[in-house]
């Protein structure tokens, strides 16, 4: 099997995992486990006083923008890496061809 088919199938499985999660409970709110953790703490210890507030809290829209920014930074580096590899492979081939012509 060609590599890109294998990789494509792998990504398909990943998509299927999350599609299944969404279809399996359509009415769920999908709140973050981080928030669920907060609620569990307050469930165990209702008297707990949060003693330190975040220095800055983004609005929900800004928050999703910043999350996207974080993903974009990472994706940029991964894309650069793959592009760099392709470029150097091409160059290598070209140089080999040149050498053959000279010889």
């Amino acid at each position: 099997m060609k590599d890109y088919i294998k990789y494509g199938l792998g990504i398909l499985v990943v998509v299927a995992i999350f599609a299944f999660s969404l279809l399996f409970n359509r009415d769920a709110a999908f709140t973050g486990t981080d928030d669920a953790g907060k609620n569990a703490i307050l469930g165990i210890n209702p008297d707990y006083r949060v003693w330190f507030q975040p220095l800055w809290k983004p609005k929900p829209e800004t928050e999703s923008m910043l999350f996207a920014l974080q993903a974009a930074i990472g994706a940029f580096v991964i894309g650069y890496f793959i592009g760099f590899d392709r470029g150097s492979k091409k160059n290598l081939k070209k140089e080999r061809r040149k050498k053959q012509i000279i010889n």
Binding site: F20, F30, Q70, I78
Partner: peptide, 24 residues
């Protein structure tokens, strides 16, 4: 090394749905 750091950047920024009806 940068690309393995980038992997952490991308993956930890994704909030994904789980079968339990929450996301993580």
């Amino acid at each position: 090394l940068a690309v393995s750091g980038a992997f952490i950047f991308v993956l930890s920024s994704l909030k994904l749905p789980s079968v339990t009806g929450s996301s993580s």
